[in-house]
């Protein structure tokens, strides 16, 4: 079943620059999609339409059949978004407070909030960090905290913008393991990257963007050969004609 339906989506900035142009896409529930493209190709602009942070110039996005334009609040709850800069999306002083931010905004009662926060922290393996101060966390922990924060809102689709940037090797592994775990529990994953190496072994679909358009779409094996003319480096293994290995093995 399609959880996200994007129909003829275009966005033009107020200065006239084209952000994205005529994007046509459906994402099935439970999929793991990687969206790749060079910087400035419109990846982030596209993602921000999925939960109504940006309003399209034309076209429409539907989440579980309901237009984002009609109910942006519902879209924001269902489509959780983890931004590239982990530091600037932390709101709470402690880990617990930060995860509670979303559920508090949904005006749930205290007990429900507590259950959701603890549930999300357990899912991300952070339940023993609940009282910790957020600015003392490592890069990988901050990114996991951001994921916990949207998980507690009950998001079905988890959108991650460059989730591996600025992370060291253990950080990448932590975050990747968390994403795979959520995927295994049935969440739909959509992540952007310009570094295919780290996630492509687990994806079932690869999209390539260039100049605001989706220029390739299909199973990773089929699309990988087309990446380099578009400014995205092919994983090493593919160059040597071998299958891409997971960073977790």
């Amino acid at each position: 079943m399609a959880i996200l339906e994007v129909d003829g989506l275009s966005h033009r900035f107020s200065d006239g620059a084209v952000g994205i142009e005529d994007i046509q896409l459906t994402v099935r529930e439970g999929g793991f999609t990687v969206l790749a493209g060079p910087n400035g190709s419109g990846k982030s602009t596209f993602l921000r339409h999925l939960n109504g942070l940006l309003t399209p110039t034309s076209g429409d996005v539907r989440v579980q059949g309901v237009s984002v334009r009609e109910d942006p609040r519902r879209a924001r709850q269902l489509v959780g978004m983890v931004f590239q800069d982990a530091d600037s999306q932390i709101v709470g002083e402690t880990v617990y407070d930060d995860v509670a931010f979303g559920p508090e905004n949904l005006m749930l009662d205290r007990q429900e909030i507590h259950q959701r926060v603890m549930g999300a922290l357990v899912a991300l393996g952070m339940s023993d960090m609940a009282g910790q101060r957020t600015h003392l966390l490592s890069g990988g922990e901050k990114r996991r905290l951001a994921i916990a924060g949207i998980l507690a809102m009950g998001s079905e689709v988890i959108v991650l913008d460059e989730p591996f940037s600025n992370l060291d090797y253990p950080g990448v592994r932590q975050v990747l393991a968390a994403i795979l775990d959520l995927h295994a529990r049935g969440r739909t994953i959509l992540l952007t990257t310009h570094d295919l190496e780290k996630a492509i072994a687990h994806a079932d679909r690869l999209l390539l963007m260039e100049k605001g358009r989706i220029v390739a779409d299909g199973p990773p094996d089929a699309v990988l050969s087309k990446t380099e003319p578009l400014g995205v480096r092919r994983p090493c293994a593919v160059r040597w004609g071998r299958p891409v290995e997971s960073w977790l093995s």
Binding site: R76, F83, E104, L108, D109, I150
Partner: peptide
Amino acid sequence: LDADRLATAMDARCYTESRSTQP
């Protein structure tokens, strides 16, 4: 710029002023 990103992230997490708070 960081403040701008924070505002966007808060928006993405359904920020409203009528949110529930610790009683």
